[in-house]
Write a protein that binds this DNA or RNA. Structure first.
Lengths: 107, 107
DNA sequence: GTATTTTTGGACAAAATTTGTACTGAATGG
DNA sequence: CCATTCAGTACAAATTTTGTCCAAAAATAC
């Protein structure tokens, strides 16, 4: 009862979307105009989607683009932490830096 | 009484270290064997330090390498959020994904 | 003032990373 | 069998990042 599917990666969520629609990689890939192999890699987080691609995916599956983009961005951060073996508390620090930098930039 | 220097960027902290030591860019740069211009850019967050460089900086200033590295990593995350104009809550999502992924990888 | 040193900023080649495709092989289902 | 789907590798092309050089600006000292 611990890890529901909620925090799957972007790729996993994409795969679920596709499988729920009962479509193959090729079917999705050709209509969004990329190589099926690339789509497969994206589903397995071996390649990163471009923003245009995320937009196309969102419209293909009729899901919210902004939400998909957020999923992708949080993926990137999660993977960075994993492969830097960084302490989770850098997230808190990062958050504080964001407001620090926003203050500098704006007010 | 709001923003103490605590959440300055990596570069700003580096600059503070250098200025507190009363040294010029050139002085620091030559002993850690980089171009002064590169060091200046790093202080202004226009270039990113490599890990080796962080190590050298830490040992030059006698500060903790791991801590400096964390500063740098949190910088990277903060800048990503800023230039993607991402919602701060992706940090929470990222944190959850980290444990999700760790679970997948390990147990 | 002007000379000297420090710092900034742009331009750019070199290096490193990422991307997307082609191709091969394994697995599955007729 | 044969056809199709997906995984996995290799690699050229594209993109991004890096580090240096140089000149201009800013600060400091004389």
């Amino acid at each position: 009862m611990v890890n529901e599917k909620k925090h799957a990666t972007f790729g996993e969520q994409l795969r679920i979307l596709r499988e729920n629609a009962g479509l193959t990689l090729r079917e999705v890939a050709t209509t969004i105009e990329i190589d099926p192999s690339l789509l497969a890699k994206i589903e397995r987080s071996q390649r990163q989607p471009t923003k245009v691609l995320i937009k196309n995916i969102a419209s293909f599956f009729n899901t919210d683009e902004k939400e998909l983009l957020n999923e992708f961005l949080s993926d990137q951060i999660a993977y960075k932490i994993l492969d830097e073996e960084a302490d989770l508390n850098i997230l808190k620090v990062a958050e504080e830096k964001v407001s620090y930098l926003k203050n500098l930039r704006d007010g």
